[in-house]
Nucleic acid binder design. Structure first.
Lengths: 150, 150
DNA sequence: GTTGACCCTCCAATGGTGGTAGGGTGTAGA
DNA sequence: TCTACACCCTACCACCATTGGAGGGTCAAC
């Protein structure tokens, strides 16, 4: 299997396949005589694992741990569960932050005429002397990575 | 006001104050004879606006638009509202993605013993032949930027 | 006049992804 | 056999927002 076929089979872009190899997330693929990467079914299975973990929002480092556990027949399911639950807590934290932003914005937008007059509570709130957020003193928003589409 | 004081007054790090200036989000601060940036109350107000917009998850480009509207006395509130609601829709999209991830993970974790036995539905699901997500065919997760904490 | 807290610019890294340039390879059809 | 075209390779650069550091200047207090 060439890298292009592997990409189709796993849903991971060719770029990312090479990148995952480069950072050591997955072992380097074998090479053909001409230097082309060659993927076995086992490779593909592993990459599909990676892709699904990405879909669940795991970061590459966490995926590395998951892969280790996956391949360790003597793992304790407690370790896997704990990793997963840690991640859930992180996702929930992000969701709470989103919730707050959405609630504030919807509140403000709801009170904005949205016509051709200039007065707008959204801008006045952003420009006001007090802090913009409603409840809960403003805290440093934990801008944890959620990946980026370049 | 020096940059350090401005940083305390706005909640924006010194680094970011310089960065926002560099990318043209805010006009360059005046300089003292020795080259130190000097911030006026007006500058501070503008920067507080920026910080609050960031807290609401707006991206720098959107903040630039918001700043323009803020300073344009003849703006139409409709334009502001539309910008805000676009942003809300984006946040809601991200929240939906988080919800799906959380639901899937909680489901899987719930069925994991979490003891010292190795069998674990989390890993088997990630490693299975089918797709990991429950409802809704897997779609490309829109990994839109949510900022990054370096 | 020295110390220490500030300020300056410039460069690099982060994480995950996309892009492109400049080249080699493999295969199908004329 | 030649050619076209789709693929592969490496090595870069860009993105976004942010932090860090190095190497050097400035200011105020003691």
């Amino acid at each position: 299997m060439n890298i292009g076929e592997a990409s189709k089979a796993t849903g991971i872009s060719v770029k990312m396949l090479r990148y995952y190899e480069e950072i050591g997330l997955v072992r380097a693929a074998l090479r053909s005589l001409s230097g082309y990467r060659v993927y076995s079914d086992k490779n593909i299975a592993m990459l599909r694992f990676v892709r699904r973990a990405r879909d669940l929002g795991f970061q590459v480092k966490q995926i590395a741990s998951l892969l280790d556990l996956w391949q360790d027949g003597s793992r304790a399911s407690a370790d896997v569960k704990s990793l997963a639950l840690d991640h859930v807590r992180e996702l929930e934290q992000r969701r709470r932050e989103l919730d707050e932003m959405i609630a504030t914005l919807e509140h403000l937008a709801h009170h904005c005429h949205g016509d051709d007059r200039p007065d707008c509570p959204i801008l006045s709130s952003l420009g006001s002397e007090e802090d913009a957020e409603p409840k809960s003193k403003r805290k440093k928003v934990s801008r944890r990575s959620f990946g980026v589409a370049g």
